[in-house]
Amino acid sequence: MIGVVSYLTFFLTMAGIMAIITLGLNLQWGYTGLFNGGVVAFFGAGAYGTMILGGPAEPGQFGGFGLPYLVALGGGVLLAAALAWVVGLLTLRLRHDYLAISTFGVAVALESLARNSQWLTGGARGMRGFPRPFEAVIESNFLFGVVFLLIVLAVLALVWWGIERLVHSPFGRALRAIREDETAARALGKSPTRLRLWSLVIGAAIMGAGGGLYVSYTAFVSPQDLLPILTFQVWAMLIVGGAGNNRGAVLGAVLIWGAWTLSGFALTRLVPDSMQLDAGSIQYILIGTLIVSMLLWRPEGLLPERISNPRNTTVAKAAHTSNKE
């Protein structure tokens, strides 16, 4: 029984970290309309930043400052934000699909950097030995799991509260205004580029927090954690849950992460031995089908944005015509 509770604690920890990242994407995409195709880059910046600042020293390698946990985590968040700021300056003036490709490319470039810069990131071997928060003072492994879950939930709550505050402030209304109609917003004296940059940076900082939390749980990070599959997962969470709605984003994160792990669990037990090799492929096909079906039949997600008129009727038309000007 304690085992099940222990696993559930862990599951919620991972789902919570994914939910934090999804909230970051929700700010960028749901509230601002920024197509970030490189979520994993900001996750990775947070993870590596936290590790470099808080991890132990390695011979022949930069970093290993062994800073206190909160400082290291904060540094990871700042690194992710700084990366987003540079990326934003370079790419935010681009069309949305160019932005998606550029950010996707940023993620590929960051993975390349992590894989090859042995002096900075340890190369493909990754970095190890992050002191997990409070582990030294907590005897029980189970209790550590609970404490860590509480940390993750606290960060999640903080991010949620912050985003809610933000989107209901004049800043948030301005963000939605430029998402809906950039020209009108511009006419009202808002600077779309500056607002978008802020949204990208804040969203990326949140993703970086997710990366920092992840690395402080596993105590290890390697380029293998920077593969594009994470970007895909987070997008799936947001689309299924409902973009523009924080509750939807969190629900999507829990559901998709649950489906992802549970289907692996179920497939290894249900699929006959002769087809075990195919289980992974079948799982991806199921997930792909789920995404496509969702977009076909419920494109607004399970919990759609709560604005008087649903955006995917009027706005889609508006976007369509504005694209063809």
Binding site: I239, I285, I287, G288, I291, L295
Partner: peptide, 19 residues
Amino acid sequence: ADPLSMVFASFGVALIIRN
């Protein structure tokens, strides 16, 4: 839906075809 849903759907389609 809006054109951006198409981009995301294409991710899903790619995953299906490849596997």
